[in-house]
């Protein structure tokens, strides 16, 4: 499932980049927007896989013991944060491009690529960290099912994976700040 999703996401990105070249798009604006879109797309795909996986495991435990629902909900929600990081990344791109002020500057092809690559850390770190955080969450859900008093430890273990998504977002943010318009 993960393999198919990751493959599909990359294929989509490559297809879009291919179209950009094939149509000889000379404005960098398309590439800059593509960068923001890819950040949401990949981080969102990762989060949906992670949350979905953890949700299935949590539903399994809840079917046997409904009282554990509250403790499991947090573990299920954790892999969802990467999707928000992707959204933040895209929001920052849009802000920098002046989408909200209404004055969109001319973006060269070089600058377009800069935007595109600046979004890669949050996109890729978001994709993979969400999937692996989902796996840790599933393991944590198993731990909570067996020992509910250890749910805090399960949460910390899953939260450790979050570090790398945060680093990805931070790197994207710094790279974005470095782009001169």
């Amino acid at each position: 499932m993960v393999g198919i999703a990751v493959g599909a996401a990359f294929t989509a990105v490559i297809a879009v980049v291919g179209v950009v070249f094939a149509l000889d798009v000379s404005t960098g604006l398309s590439l800059a927007i593509l960068g923001g879109a890819v950040a949401i797309l990949l981080a969102g795909v990762g989060s949906s896989i992670g949350v979905g996986m953890a949700g299935e495991a949590a539903a399994g435990v809840t079917a046997e013991d409904p009282e554990k629902y509250g403790k499991l909900l947090l573990l299920q929600a954790l892999p969802g944060t990467q999707g928000f990081y992707g959204l933040i990344g895209a929001f920052l791109v849009m802000n920098k491009l002046g989408f909200f002020s209404g004055s969109i500057p001319d973006i060269t092809l070089d600058q377009g690529w800069q935007f595109f690559f600046a979004m890669m850390p949050v996109a890729l770190a978001g994709l993979f960290s969400a999937i692996f955080q989902g796996r840790v969450s599933v393991a944590g859900i198993g731990l909570t099912a067996k020992r509910p008093e250890e749910s805090g430890k399960a949460l910390i273990m899953a939260a450790m994976v979050e570090t790398y998504a945060v680093l990805g977002l931070l790197a994207s943010l710094l790279l974005l700040n470095g782009i001169r318009l």
């Binding site: 499932m1 495991a57 399994g60 435990v61 079917a63 013991d65 599933v138 198993g142 099912a145 067996k146």
Partner: peptide, 20 residues
């Protein structure tokens, strides 16, 4: 290789049943 993810629900349910 990736078939284990299909077992997310089943594994959760089994973890609950293991307590019994």
């Amino acid at each position: 290789e990736m078939h284990d993810q299909e077992y997310a629900f089943a594994t959760g349910r089994i973890r609950g049943m293991e307590n019994q």
